[in-house]
């Protein structure tokens, strides 16, 4: 199968993620959309790796996964503490950048 198709898929996933980040208020959903975008990038990296015949892209993908995992930890912690104090997970409620 032509690897370019994977790139199209990655672009599609990225667009879905970006749209979600922009239009959804719920922090959890925004968060999942961010993950979606990250994974879209991963897909693109792997596809490029295949196209160029070296492993650089795959290595970067692993890095991204590690960073994403760390981000999940911090992000979820923030969302949980936000939810505890406000009983809502809307990102717009936190516009003052403080609890």
């Amino acid at each position: 199968m032509n690897p370019v198709n994977y790139l199209y898929l990655a672009a599609l996933l990225f667009t879905i993620g970006a749209t979600g980040v922009l239009i959804r208020r719920n922090a959890i959903v925004v968060f999942m959309c961010v993950e979606l975008m990250l994974n879209a990038c991963n897909l693109a990296f792997v596809a490029f790796s295949r196209m160029h015949g070296n492993l650089d892209g795959q290595i970067i993908a692993f890095f991204t996964m590690v960073v994403a995992a760390a981000e999940v930890v911090v992000g979820l912690a923030i969302i949980v503490s936000l939810f505890r104090s406000r009983h809502s997970a809307s990102v717009d409620d936190a516009s003052l950048m403080k609890l």
Binding site: A18, V30, V91, D92, S95
Partner: peptide, 11 residues
Amino acid sequence: GFARSYALSMF
């Protein structure tokens, strides 16, 4: 302070 408007400007 709206995170989504920041995101929009970023995009």
